Simulated scan of single mutants.
Amino acid sequence: MTLVNPSDDADPEEQSAVDEGEVEDLKPIDQATLDKLMELYAGASEVERSSELDGASPDGPTSDVDLPGFKFLTSLLKATPFTDFVHYQSVSCYTHPEKQDRVSQYCSEHKWVSGFCTFADILLRVVVVLMVLGTIGAILVGAIYKTFYA
């Protein structure tokens, strides 16, 4: 593979030809530039660091607790099925170039639906939290009752 760069003395017409994909106006890179490029590439730390991550997020793990059922509870707390419905409807009904514009258009035209979906997602999270706290409370009450009163 030969590395090439546009000629420095090219006029704007020749430069536009290069921009359009014509490569006949390009000249090979001299050896000094190639040596400098290889020197920079050899000292690149970004490539080494990204290969050390092995596909992991650079911010680290999202949760370091690996308990049975923890991922399930986390997914329940992050679930937004009603808001996902609003997003699905907005993407399928509107033709704005940006998804955000589609969602805002849908929410402005269907305020009741988007408000209900937001409330339902919050209510779902509250119910999940109450179920978890209720289960923990029932376990504690059962343990205390068996320990002291049985």
Rank of each mutant, 00 (worst) to 15 (best):
T74S: 14
Q105H: 13
D64A: 09
Q89A: 13
E13V: 13
L53A: 14
D19S: 06
C93K: 12
H110V: 01
G115R: 06
L67Q: 02
G55W: 04
K78L: 11
L76R: 08
M38P: 00
F70L: 04
G115Y: 08
V141H: 01
T118N: 11
L40T: 05
L40N: 08
F85I: 07
D66S: 10
G55M: 08
Q105A: 08
T33E: 08
D9K: 06
P81Q: 04
S63F: 12
L26K: 02
V4R: 15
I139R: 02
G43T: 04
Q100S: 14
A17R: 12
C117M: 11
P58Y: 11
M131G: 15
S90T: 02
L37P: 00
V141K: 11
L26C: 06
G115T: 13
C107W: 00
C93E: 11
E39G: 07
D25A: 05
V18W: 04
D25Q: 05
D59N: 07
S104Y: 09
E24Q: 12
F116N: 00
D8M: 05
D8S: 12
I144C: 08
G43R: 04
L67W: 09
L77Q: 09
S7K: 15
L37S: 11
V47H: 05
E14C: 02
Q31N: 06
P81H: 07
I122T: 07
K27P: 00
E14T: 15
D11V: 03
V86N: 09
E46W: 14
A120T: 03
L124C: 01
G60W: 11
Y88L: 15
P28L: 03
R49M: 05
L67I: 03
D54P: 00
D11C: 07
F119H: 04
I136G: 12
T33Q: 10
E109W: 00
I139F: 08
P58M: 10
Y149M: 07
P81S: 05
A150M: 06
S51N: 08
F116R: 00
S90R: 03
G60E: 07
S57R: 07
V4F: 06
V126I: 15
V86F: 01
T83G: 09
A56G: 03
Q31S: 11
T33I: 01
I122V: 11
D9E: 12
G115P: 02
F85D: 14
G43V: 00
A150D: 11
S108M: 10
D9P: 01
D59F: 14
V113I: 09
S51I: 04
K146T: 12
E46S: 14
R102M: 05
R125D: 04
S45V: 10
S75G: 01
T74C: 02
P68I: 06
